[in-house]
Design a protein around this nucleic acid. Sequence first.
DNA 1: GCAAGTAGACTTGTCAGACATCTGGCGACG
DNA 2: CGTCGCCAGATGTCTGACAAGTCTACTTGC
Lengths: 234, 234
Amino acid sequence: MARKSLVGVVADELLDRIIAGDFPPGSSVPGELELSARHEVSRMTVREAMKTLEAQRILSVERGRGTFVNPLNRWASLEAVLRAASEGQNEAVASVQLIELRRMLETGACELAASRISDRDIEALFGNVAAMRLAHEVNDVAAFVEADLAFHDLILRASENVFVAVLFEPLQRVLEKRRAETSAVRTIQEHAIGHHQHIAEALESRDPAKARKAMDSHMQQTLDDLKNLVLEAP
Amino acid sequence: MARKSLVGVVADELLDRIIAGDFPPGSSVPGELELSARHEVSRMTVREAMKTLEAQRILSVERGRGTFVNPLNRWASLEAVLRAASEGQNEAVASVQLIELRRMLETGACELAASRISDRDIEALFGNVAAMRLAHEVNDVAAFVEADLAFHDLILRASENVFVAVLFEPLQRVLEKRRAETSAVRTIQEHAIGHHQHIAEALESRDPAKARKAMDSHMQQTLDDLKNLVLEAP
DNA sequence: GCAAGTAGACTTGTCAGACATCTGGCGACG
DNA sequence: CGTCGCCAGATGTCTGACAAGTCTACTTGC
């Protein structure tokens, strides 16, 4: 694990204080000198920390006036928004909303991919399903997850839309922990194998509507699994 | 227009050189000292420029080794990716892909909003349609666009999904210029009014599938309009 | 008395130079 | 031949200073 530099520490602590509500949107954040004294670092370090938060549109720096907190809907960092939205009892709500977002992107990408995917990619898709089946039989969770991820990644790339991939990348990183959890349950594995088989077949038929529906069913299953896990967890 | 600070200029020029292919993904960019000499600024300025690019996951800075260019699919900035994807003759392709992305988010948000939207918001929706109709009659393009944007913004917020709004914000900023162009054509205005009316009615019926379909038709129209304008432009 | 102008305090922007710390390779030494 | 240590080069941080924008409040001229 990479030890964080001072800049990272200061940026994190400042973001924590923003999320905690110390500095509500629209208000100003303490000056660079004050922060450098508080965190016992030089002003340059504080400036670099601010620059990272400004690049994520969390802060707006105005020369001569001060530095201000942007409203949450202008933040450009999915992870920062996730941290802010997960405060308190909202973690379950945030998880569901993330799945909803994933559903939009994946079903859309699948619909596009249906009319653009190559024969070779379809073959690879069925190969991934076979790999999932095998991993299920020998009870190899890691291999199962890997084939699962490769399957979805292939569809994303087959949609031939660069921007979808860009938006999806941070989402995947946030969700990968929970995916590993759900994938450990054998009955869920069986469900997933069936859904993936249907998706591959739908793509093979080159029917966008059918492909979208197949992926949507898969996402609905994923959402149900998440709800059952989160809500029933002790 | 805000004059860009030196940091912004350096960051832009460096990004331009990356996009131009001077530093392909995986390779290293020149050291801080070399860049500070090239741009005739201090090392601190270069460092802050690098920090902004690092925060957007365009660069990876590794202490003691150097600074490296990330592959495009790891970039976190929609606008930077757009700049990279619009190089050469690809601008039309990039525009279409952006609309595809917007379609995913807006149809998804509309589907969610159908079961969550309040009566008051529905009323406001019809109010916006009325405003569009009025603006159409008196030929006020600015008012038309404003009501249009308010309509879509309302649906986004009615979906009650924070993350959708976060992803959609930069998209909207990128697309707003073209939207103003298409909205200037009177026949397109008429089409849009009809579609918006259908969307509002579908949401009023609280039928998610119907709402999704109505929004999808609207997006299809937008896509067709864009294609006709881009492809037929002299 | 009032308004315009201005001095000052406070903010961020940039610069210069220095030292610390990490990485990787090269060479000396066992 | 392998290992250790040194060194060049990279980024990380600090100090102190000055430039430049913004807002407030006081001064000044009418």
